[in-house]
Design a binder for these strands. Structure first.
Lengths: 150, 150
DNA sequence: ATCATACATTTGTACCTACAATTATTGAAA
DNA sequence: TTTCAATAATTGTAGGTACAAATGTATGAT
């Protein structure tokens, strides 16, 4: 469906405007798709994102700033996201011994198990989304988005 | 810049995954670009969106559900967004006389003046963003995003 | 050694989002 | 006509985002 139908616009939008709205709208839409799956696991997209980042460290502890740098939404308040995950015992945090300004954050064993369970369902959903485009189109879309951001 | 550098991923991501992350990331990025401009006017992207929708009605009052349908972020809590705009006297609201369940929302004269001022700056910023792609690429990007959502 | 500065994180506040529950109103069926 | 379901908006609560200010720690210059 065209973007102007989604937002029920009555005036004719310029191609440029349509494209920008489309990028915003599709980003929201994709976020909603993933959030819907995550809802069953009582976890938000950003919390899931933190868990994935920590798993990617393969046992090396991460600072808050390491996590922040890797977040998809750069303005997340990582302190509070991590706190929520600590409450769920999915991650652990302690002061960095060599530099007490920093913290060392790790995914726990139960965090890893949980993440693997969630990941399976998320990846199914993602596969269902990407199947609408072939490899060449995915590559094009990737390239165009990169170019848009400069 | 490639998306894997933005999120500083160390493992090699599949093309599919990169594309999905890219859609989310670029949506956030674009939102941040526009929000940065709006900040000078003390208005959020969603409040700006509501004002644009109301202007598009050309003097016809809008219900809350009319606005909601036209929002880029479909889950905005429109009641509260409108309340904020009423406090700033940029929009007005009254009970719909023919159906007291509904409300009639209008942009005020000062809302229109304000919107026009903001719009000029926003459109400059938008033009600066879209200039990285030519017409054909913009058309492609539009088509690919539409196809991704089915 | 002291001090100013930079760094890493936390906290505060306002706004926004997600979603469920509630209130008020309407319209149609029993 | 009463009642019940549907509709439109509002409210409540928890979580997330944006941004500034505060806290605690490290480090280089003097």
């Amino acid at each position: 469906m065209k973007i102007e139908n989604h937002i029920k616009s009555n005036k004719t939008l310029s191609l440029h405007k349509k494209m920008l709205i489309n990028v915003l709208y599709t980003g929201n839409w994709l976020n909603d798709c993933i959030s819907e799956v995550l809802k069953d696991f009582d976890i938000s997209a950003q919390q899931f994102n933190v868990l994935r980042i920590l798993k990617g460290r393969n046992g090396n502890p991460a600072n808050l700033s390491d996590i922040q740098e890797r977040m998809i939404a750069k303005n997340s308040n990582t302190t509070r996201l991590v706190d929520k995950l600590i409450n769920k015992e999915l991650v652990s945090k302690k002061k960095c011994p060599s530099n007490k300004r920093k913290v060392e954050i790790l995914i726990t064993a139960s965090g890893l198990t949980f993440l693997d369970q969630v990941n399976e369902v998320v990846e199914n959903r993602e596969a269902n989304i990407t199947k609408h485009l072939n490899e060449e189109e995915i590559e094009q879309l990737n390239a165009l988005l990169n170019k848009l951001r400069n």
